[in-house]
Amino acid sequence: MIPSTFDFAPIWLTLRLATITTLLLLLIGTPLARWLSRTQSWLKRPVGAAVALPLVLPPTVLGFYLLVMLGPQGPGGHLTQALGLGLLPFTFAGLVFGSTLYSLPFVVQPIQNAFEALGERPLEAAATLRAGPWDRFFSVAVPLARPGFVTAIVLGFAHTVGEFGVVLMIGGNIPGATRVLSVAIYDHVEAMEYAQAHWLAGGMLAFSFLVLLALYGPSKRMQESKS
């Protein structure tokens, strides 16, 4: 039985956060991945390393810096205030910003790998058929890199759902704005409301397993059909 006081708000909030973050990441990550896959610039290595940082850093590092940089005394805080956006910590927009940074490598790297595996030849072939650069990109590169995009979307979405440290540190646990699933679970556990914690935590476990199952399932079939 689901407890009568069960609160669904964190679930919707989390899904909204993950959806918006994933869309944003596709918009930012696709050109970035394309650039990383082709460039000969010396900037490739430092940019690639910066993108991968969230894989290595504990979320507390990112959360701490976001809190300080985006606060009223930080440079980020000055900027958002000057732009009339106010301050980002304790807002949904702040969580979107933090999650976008935190999930960046999970979206950029699969797309970059797909582009790199593709190489330049299909695009050169398209160019001889007088396809313009945009046309080449959207009707050749993107469809051929589709498995990379699927992986990126699934990982970006799932990783945002599973995020905890950053949202705890810059969120402030506000119902409907920043109290996402992982924070709600943590709260229930600390308050010893184990029944509610079990419902949310169990649901999350099942969700994550299904997501990964979906991710591993089709790619295997695709490999089989290729061979």
């Binding site: 809190l67 606060g71 009223p72 304790f90 540190m169 402030g172 646990n173 943590y186 600390e190």
Partner: peptide, 20 residues
């Protein structure tokens, strides 16, 4: 207007950084 700290240390952190 409440922002909730998970414990009193985090609450202090919110105020000390000026975010609250």
């Amino acid at each position: 207007k409440l922002v909730l700290g998970e414990n009193i240390t985090q609450t202090y952190q919110f105020v000390a950084t000026g975010n609250a």
